[in-house]
Computed example of a mutant assay.
Amino acid sequence: MTQPRLDVLCIGNAIVDVIADTDDAFLAEQGLAKNSMRLIDEEEAVRLYGLMGPGREVSGGSAGNTAAGVAALGLKAGFIGQVATDELGDIYRHDIESQGVEFLVEARGDVGATARSLILVTPDAHRTMNTFLGAAQRLESKAIDRDRIAEAAILYLEGYLWDPEVPRAAMEAAIEAAHAAGRKVAFTLSDTFCVDRHRSGFWDLLWDGKIDILFANEAEALAMAATDDIEEAKAVLARAVPLLVVTKSEKGASAISADERADVPAEPIERLVDTTGAGDLFAAGFLAGHARGMTLENSLRLGAIAAAEVIQHYGARPEKDLRALAGSLLA
């Protein structure tokens, strides 16, 4: 097996986040469930955008955020996601490449508009996401270059992109290419709505041995295991995947691999501003540690450090020097 050129290659929705402050009254007025994520069409995206307060445009998307975090930690990262030949598509490519991530898919003019997520942040830092997938859900299998997949030590996939049939086929092709090259495949469940819609398909991935590293938060783990006991959920999932990582917000995170388990607390923060991207950056830290051969505990610690940085400001991309924050972990 050849030496990998990239440490982590991420595949996911290429989405530009539009983030605005709001309050509970606005959410209630719009019939929005606080701290949820819903898919919307382009008409609703235009309507809701017109009602939002001043917004900040930041390139996002779960796997894209993770790729940016991996690069910020000094590792080599790539990203595969579909954008359109429009202004937001140009913004997305520029932003992710400026952060040191290789963007491996050409923009297209026949896929509609570039995806965007309208993120409403309440004073308690909870975010309510309204996502128009647009071009992102038009990622096709022909965009998957098997040679590029084979160049990455770890292929990382987001559950959000499993929803539409076309990109699901692209991700399946990528999984096959990664394993054929002897590489590892990591997968994040992304959201409980993804689990509810695709629980059977996700279990098929696990039992068929297609996933080597599974990321889930507590709610997603409970939904997958159909239980209200988080330790039972971890045990059920750990039997189905070589390495399980479960995040628990302010309670820290756990990793289980065979008979080995590690638990770490959350990193202390000065002020909680916006939880957007916390799980994405945690995955970036953990994957960076894993790619460098760190212990489960140190990989979890690196994930906690990256997550703590991103929740102290708006947007899902790191603003401070993650390598400096990691200190001796990355020495």
Score class of each variant (00 low, 15 high):
residue 4 P to L: 02
residue 100 G to T: 02
residue 255 A to D: 10
residue 161 L to P: 14
residue 214 L to Q: 00
residue 313 H to R: 06
residue 118 L to S: 07
residue 47 R to A: 07
residue 139 L to K: 01
residue 210 K to T: 08
residue 174 A to H: 01
residue 72 A to C: 12
residue 329 L to G: 11
residue 231 E to W: 13
residue 202 F to N: 14
residue 186 A to S: 15
residue 199 R to S: 05
residue 278 A to F: 15
residue 287 L to R: 01
residue 140 E to H: 10
residue 317 R to Q: 03
residue 82 Q to D: 04
residue 126 H to Y: 12
residue 49 Y to V: 12
residue 211 I to E: 03
residue 175 I to E: 14
residue 277 G to F: 02
residue 65 N to P: 05
residue 186 A to C: 14
residue 100 G to Y: 04
residue 270 E to G: 09
residue 101 V to F: 04
residue 212 D to V: 05
residue 258 A to R: 15
residue 63 A to S: 07
residue 142 K to H: 12
residue 122 T to E: 10
residue 203 W to H: 13
residue 9 L to I: 00
residue 200 S to H: 14
residue 8 V to W: 02
residue 189 L to K: 06
residue 283 A to K: 10
residue 284 A to E: 05
residue 281 L to Y: 03
residue 118 L to D: 05
residue 56 R to W: 06
residue 6 L to H: 02
residue 221 A to D: 04
residue 323 R to D: 09
residue 212 D to I: 04
residue 53 G to I: 06
residue 300 L to Y: 05
residue 266 A to W: 08
residue 166 V to R: 13
residue 158 E to T: 13
residue 74 G to A: 10
residue 55 G to I: 03
residue 137 Q to G: 04
residue 331 A to N: 12
residue 224 M to Y: 11
residue 242 P to T: 12
residue 173 A to T: 12
residue 269 I to T: 07
residue 21 D to P: 11
residue 57 E to C: 14
residue 115 A to Q: 04
residue 105 V to D: 06
residue 232 E to Q: 10
residue 303 G to D: 11
residue 323 R to M: 13
residue 219 A to V: 08
residue 49 Y to N: 15
residue 199 R to N: 04
residue 139 L to N: 00
residue 28 A to P: 14
residue 126 H to Q: 14
residue 193 F to T: 04
residue 23 D to H: 06
residue 137 Q to D: 07
residue 15 I to D: 00
residue 260 E to H: 10
residue 217 N to E: 02
residue 291 A to S: 04
